[in-house]
Design a protein around this nucleic acid. Structure first.
Lengths: 144, 144
DNA sequence: CACTCAATGGACTTGACCATCCGCTGACGT
DNA sequence: ACGTCAGCGGATGGTCAAGTCCATTGAGTG
């Protein structure tokens, strides 16, 4: 299971921003150094987050990037969508065009189990959860 | 959340094989047509599964591929590893070299929640689960 | 106004993954 | 033996994400 490098970068950058005291902002260069993302690349990334309305940017002296909303209102799924991370809840791993509860492919059951776990995770987790550390929500999978 | 195309193909091919009645085998060509995977590509894939010991192959007339073990003994994680799908349980999304419960990065909590969901899914699900349809194991994520 | 800073945008390079092609090898049937 | 069938292996090409470079624009400072 993996996100794309870009998606991971996006979460990482947003995490760094959300951890700055007092809703502060930061320059792309600082974020790059702090997060280990190549400067030129994080720059493009941040732009996408601005376009998506998750960040606000300021040019020139004293410029940089700031969260556009409080951390609690920025879900991971918002960040992922902002960088075009593909979230296809209806994708069928078995290759069927039509695949749902009515017409389930052989993989449907176990596959949607995994997809839903991811979807819920992305929709429930916000930047505020990062600030708090581990959100105590219990195990993601049943303990058998 | 996504697997690579190759990983998905591998699961798909194995799923098809495990659904043949009476532990039958199939030719690469048949699997390709049935599963919608390009023939030349599934061929390479199946080879990897043979090398990994999950399949057995037979050349020439009447040849093809068969499961090397009963479906219940082939876990998804085995299939994924066979096609070199990267499973890095210790990978830190925040970019830290050292990241564990002792030295948790800000993302550690929520991130490992997701990783563990995937890992358990891959380790628990076997080809036998496919045959049975949906394994009733309850939700992957807590219901809030 | 002149200078510097930092985001913006475009063009470009690289490399991994996906996919195809073709000749070779081993197994079976006649 | 010979021919066919089907897996095996290497070489090759296409595509897209990942990463780099550079010129431009807008904003603040002296």
């Amino acid at each position: 299971m993996h996100l794309t490098q870009t998606a991971e970068y996006a979460l990482r950058a947003m995490a760094h921003l959300s951890m700055l005291p007092g809703g502060q902002g930061a320059r792309a260069k600082d974020l790059a150094e702090a997060s280990g993302i190549p400067m030129a690349y994080v720059s493009k990334l941040l732009r996408k987050l601005v376009v998506a309305g998750l960040l606000e940017s300021q040019k020139g002296h004293g410029g940089g990037f700031v969260l556009a909303r409080p951390p609690a209102e920025i879900r991971f799924v918002d960040v992922l969508r902002a960088v075009d991370y593909p979230i296809e809840p209806n994708h069928c791993a078995f290759g069927w065009g039509e695949c749902n509860v009515r017409h389930p492919c052989p993989l449907h059951g176990t596959w949607s189990q995994l997809k839903e776990a991811f979807t819920r995770w992305a929709e429930r987790t916000t930047l505020a959860d990062i600030q708090r550390g581990v959100p105590p929500r219990g195990p993601l999978l049943p303990t058998r």
